[in-house]
Design a protein around this nucleic acid. Structure first.
Lengths: 255, 255
DNA sequence: CGTTCGGTTGATTGACATCAACAACAGTGG
DNA sequence: CCACTGTTGTTGATGTCAATCAACCGAACG
């Protein structure tokens, strides 16, 4: 099993995963106080219960952490894969909601107070929490770098590369997106249409190939991360249709 | 002293600040292994020495942490005020550089290995590091929310509010920017001109008042954080005109 | 079989990056 | 004192780009 499962489903049992991760630790510690929850796609994990009452760790599946800010826009702050950690930031922070991206997502919830006590009494636990927190910082910084890009194309391209880098272990140029276009839009602070357009644009440029809406093949990673993306949109030929014949001059910006 | 100092200068002595912060701790711990460095405006703090060999904490003054990404653009990932913590993210992370924003900025550098050992042997230290790291996560998330805004005006407005919130203790509507327009641009992923234009725009709308390039007075914080900023650019009437915060119509998009 | 949802495409308008020039100011050296 | 120079901030004009409104399509689902 696992071969013919629905793509929305997490591939393994959460309980088993948890047991495995417990075995890795010297003494069963953090996970001994974990509250395991299993959620289907779209369901919230401990919705807006306590603001900062828990730390969370995705055991299997995937989840997104998002906030809705005044104005109705939603910003996804983090995409969590197995073993990714998320702790609500204490004060003044807007209320995040954690939501499963695929079915059978299992999340370990650590009551913050007890987890803190545990970290206080066990240097191993403290070290683990520290490492997980630093990983979270790294993810945030990478997202920040992606958000800092000027064009939507580069944002989406960076997102694809980052997704590939995080999901597949190695040397597989295929990526399965766990997120809808809408989620990608809320993750990159773009509109859905722009995300869709950027993807087809990248496809027309030959950088990626789409086999199904969520199955992406990275044809040329080098082009994606280089400035080739910046080259003006003409000469792309979006399939038939000359599109914008001679705009003639363009910038050819150099450093 | 302190009244007639140059605004670039940090207001207090770093050594004294460090001593004070040591007194707050139960046992002198983290700061006992600190290497103190004092930098002038624009100088690097341990430039691109080790990628992740140190943790840093600003003692007095201010600093910025930035990366230059291929293409020449520079992204400022964090602005550090006294007691703000910064730890380079271990792997694959781009090389950050830490740079003083004002003269006489003092930064405590903790050798990572020794700091980790210390955290391993002292729960207090571990707890402190954890707290500082979480604070850093909170700062990153807030920046992310700012970057997620659609218009430059809202970005700049949010930046001003955040700056006010972080710098002045309470109830002072004046803000002194520690950053040049260029730094603000690199922080918000905008161009310098757009930052400047957004500021004058906010001034014309009566939301802020500028007395000197870096001295901002927040006239109406409520307007800044509401959607009033989104109202179309007409009806602005550059100067004169009593300014009115609620313009009847805006989108009021619902989920 | 209609409905909903996710995804794509088109047309339009507004906004930002870019290039450019200009103003204010500090320092420097004749 | 005054040109010379560099830095910082502002303003203008223009092309490009993305958000928005709208329509359409296919697939999943009741």
């Amino acid at each position: 099993m696992g071969e013919h499962m629905h793509p929305d489903d997490a591939s393994r049992s959460g309980a088993r995963e948890l047991r495995e991760s417990q075995q890795q630790q010297s003494t069963a510690t953090l996970d001994s106080i974990a509250v395991l929850v299993r959620r289907s796609r779209g369901e919230e994990i401990h919705g807006s219960v306590g603001p900062d009452d828990y730390w969370y760790r995705v055991v299997s599946g995937a989840a997104k952490c998002s906030v809705v800010l005044p104005g109705g826009r939603r910003q996804i702050l983090d995409l969590l894969l197995p073993n990714d950690f998320f702790g609500f930031t204490p004060p003044g922070g807007h209320y995040c909601t954690l939501e499963a991206l695929v079915n059978n997502t299992v999340v370990a919830c650590y009551p913050r107070r007890r987890a803190e006590e545990l970290a206080h009494s066990s240097p191993q636990v403290a070290c683990e929490v520290r490492k997980l927190a630093f990983d979270g910082v790294a993810r945030l910084q990478e997202l920040l770098l992606i958000m800092g890009h000027t064009t939507a194309r580069k944002k989406v391209a960076s997102f694809l590369l980052k997704t590939k880098e995080r999901s597949s272990r190695q040397a597989d140029d295929r990526v399965v997106l766990l997120t809808s276009r809408y989620d990608i839009a809320d993750y990159l602070a773009l509109s859905v249409e722009t995300v869709s357009r950027s993807l087809t644009d990248l496809k027309h440029r030959g950088f990626i190939a789409l086999s199904g809406p969520r199955r992406v093949r990275i044809v040329n990673p080098n082009c994606l991360e280089e400035d080739d993306i910046d080259r003006p949109a003409d000469a792309v030929r979006p399939l038939s249709r000359p599109l914008r014949c001679g705009t003639g001059m363009h910038k050819m910006r150099q450093v």
